[in-house]
Design a protein around this nucleic acid. Structure first.
Lengths: 208, 208
DNA sequence: CACTCCGCATGACAAATGTCAGACGGTGGT
DNA sequence: ACCACCGTCTGACATTTGTCATGCGGAGTG
């Protein structure tokens, strides 16, 4: 039902850490039914490699220079609908999982799994099924959806690097009072002490 | 010169990401003169493994649950002076490098190097030499030493999660005015807009 | 259509934060 | 011994931030 010809699963591997990517390539190559057809060290590179080699499954690191795994997945979905995407990550933030699934990603696993297990998951994804790490899924469900409105999230993001209200107001083209109001509402929705703690919480949950 | 008997270099591998640790173990095992005698997924585990197996070189990830690579290195230095320590990291913050060298670490490399290169560096370290990634070294020199006094750093750290001044004052057993003063001085020394930006900068440079 | 609800926006007031001038004690140099 | 210097510490004052009451306008409902 996958409409694919038989033969080894053709993989694209993208991760900016050469050490990990190389090691992973070697290890996955040991599996008889898997073959790495391309490697990339950044988001844009992953895209162009995918176009050139049309892999069956793309294994993407979530954090890469240029464009993160989810952005790459979105583009791939449009350009190569036959290519399944599997995301691998070190720090699993709940919000990222949600964004990833919305981008059509078929698998989402932390780097704490073994290579053996990863190979199995690659086969699962290639067969057309989905796979999400149970622990990350639980976290995502516990965290739930973002309670923030678009404006609140926007303002909170501008506040992320400790900028004063005046600067946020200018960048968002709002009055200072309005900015304070949004921040205040975001802070109370998140149950934080102040806006800086709120930024940390929102980041943790992947809402910004 | 190293006072060691000849034979393969005995390695301890510690990294909390199973995927990477396993892949790395496989890849390094391919080198004839390297052999992995122990693996660990956390700081404390790395220590007990090192005690049990007395490796020639310990390859430690900088960020691990329990105790980070530098803390482990400090303990190892005291308990197994013959064991060289090589630290591997994803996000190289200048301050970490400095702390690592003070802890007697012999090598410090980012995960962007290839496994082949890592094997060479392991041999370099085992031979008694030091190796520090040139780019990380340049960053560390550019960042320089922390200009913060002990108190300033302490207060800044307490401010890290967005706690209000009153709470910081209580936790540091200081008056609120004093706390503000330290924060103010830290902020101006770092050239930041406010204390939150200062926290970010100090973290970036590895000064907290 | 009228009504209600909710997100968006604003200004006034209270509270927290940042800035300043200055006091005290220990260290090192003369 | 004396002095200058630096880190530590404090309170008073200006600025920034957080909270509140309130107004405006579109979406959904009766």
């Amino acid at each position: 039902m996958s409409g694919r010809t038989t033969g080894p699963v053709r993989l694209l591997l993208a991760d900016d850490e050469h050490l990990i990517r190389g090691a992973l390539a070697t290890l996955l190559s040991l599996e008889d039914d898997l073959v790495i057809v391309a490697e990339a060290a950044s988001g844009p590179e992953a895209l162009s490699m995918a176009r050139a080699h049309e892999p069956d499954v793309a294994v993407l690191d979530l954090q890469m220079p240029g464009a993160d795994g989810v952005k790459v997945a979105t583009s791939l979905r449009a350009e190569l609908p036959g290519c399944r995407v599997l995301i691998v990550t070190s720090h699993g933030r709940p919000g990222h999982l949600k964004r990833a699934l919305e981008a059509g990603v078929r698998g989402f696993v932390p780097k704490t799994v073994s290579a053996q297990r990863l190979a199995e998951i690659i086969r699962t994804v290639h067969a057309g099924n989905r796979y999400v790490d149970p622990e990350l899924a639980a976290d995502a469900i516990a965290a739930g959806d973002s309670p923030l409105t678009a404006r609140e999230a926007e303002v909170l993001e501008l506040a992320a690097d400790g900028a004063p209200v005046a600067e946020i107001a200018e960048r968002a083209a709002l009055s200072q009072g309005t900015v304070r109001n949004y921040l205040s509402s975001a802070v109370s929705k998140l149950g934080a002490e102040n806006r800086h703690a709120a930024v940390r919480l929102a980041r943790q949950r992947g809402w910004v």
